[in-house]
Each structure stands twice: as C-alpha cells, then as structure tokens.
C-alpha cells in the first residue's frame, strides 16, 4: 500500500497535537512521510539511544528487530533488520516512523512511540507516551549511525 499517496492526498502538511492536554506528547509537523524538525531542538545522544533500544520497558526494539548488538541474545524477527537503516532512511523519516508508525501503515504492529494510546490503558501508563520526546531523539541519533 502506498502511504505516500494517502498522506499526500490528504494534506501534505498536517499538524498533530496530543489528544490529552495533560500528556507528555510534543507537537510536531508531518511533511509527506517525515517529521523534518527535531521534537526538542536538543541533539540526540546515541549512547543513550542504544540503551533505550534494548531496554524492555522503553524502546524494546529488539523484541521485533534484529540490530547490530551481538551482546544481546534473542533478537526479534517481526520487523526488518535495522542494520544499515541509517543508510536507507533519513533522520526525518526515522522520526515519523518512531513517533507514529501508524501514519505510514495503519495496520502495523509497531507501536507509535510518541502518541498517547486511549483504549484500556493500564493505570500506570495512562496519558503517557511510550517514549519521551528526547528519548525519541536519542534513538534516532543511535539508529542513524547504523550504516551499511
């Protein structure tokens, strides 16, 4: 399915703001299939980003993706191998993919990491995004170093 077509057909540029006023979700602007501007304006830290990608309570990217992190056992096979993803995708593309993958593929299993979910969310997680804005920037900084 061509998500470019759908997104392009709708508006080209759309502003998304968080549904809950009390949430920690930052506003951002989607342009085609990217979010061109950093969510925080503070450069991401790739060392923190790597840790967040592994951490099961944070990104937990390894649950679904193989990554060049050999010291970790059992990499998932649900999504594509992220080795080389820094050569395939720009930071702006990675940002939309991480913030809200459903904007690209509504049926995807990949969580929208910076969007507040609303259906029967456990109390502990209510009104919160999975990753904070700076955490998203840290992970982008890390995975864009994964060059092929």
């Amino acid at each position: 399915m061509s998500y470019r077509l759908i997104l392009g057909a709708i508006v080209g540029v759309a502003v998304f703001s968080s549904l809950l006023a009390s949430s920690n979700a930052h506003d951002y602007i989607v342009v085609d299939d990217t979010i061109p501007v950093s969510l925080t304006g503070v450069p991401g830290d790739p060392v923190k980003g790597k840790k967040l990608s592994v951490n099961r309570k944070k990104g937990n990217c390894l649950a679904c993706h193989a990554m060049p992190i050999p010291e970790q056992q059992f990499h998932g096979e649900v999504g594509p191998d992220l080795s080389g993803v820094g050569s395939r995708m720009t930071q702006a593309e990675l940002r939309l993919r991480l913030v809200n993958s459903k904007a690209l593929n509504p049926d995807t299993i990949m969580p929208a990491f910076h969007k507040v979910a609303l259906n029967r969310v456990l109390k502990k997680f209510k009104g919160k995004t999975i990753l904070g804005a700076q955490e998203i920037e840290d992970i982008i900084a890390y995975i864009s170093t994964l060059k092929s």
Binding site: I109, P111, A112, A117, N119, R120, V121, L122, F125, K128, I130
Partner: peptide, 9 residues
C-alpha cells in the same frame, strides 16, 4: 481484532 493498551496492539 481490537487494539488495546499503552502499546495499542
């Protein structure tokens, strides 16, 4: 088929 929870799955 319904998505639920913080991970919305």
């Amino acid at each position: 088929m319904l998505r639920r929870g913080g991970l919305d799955m």
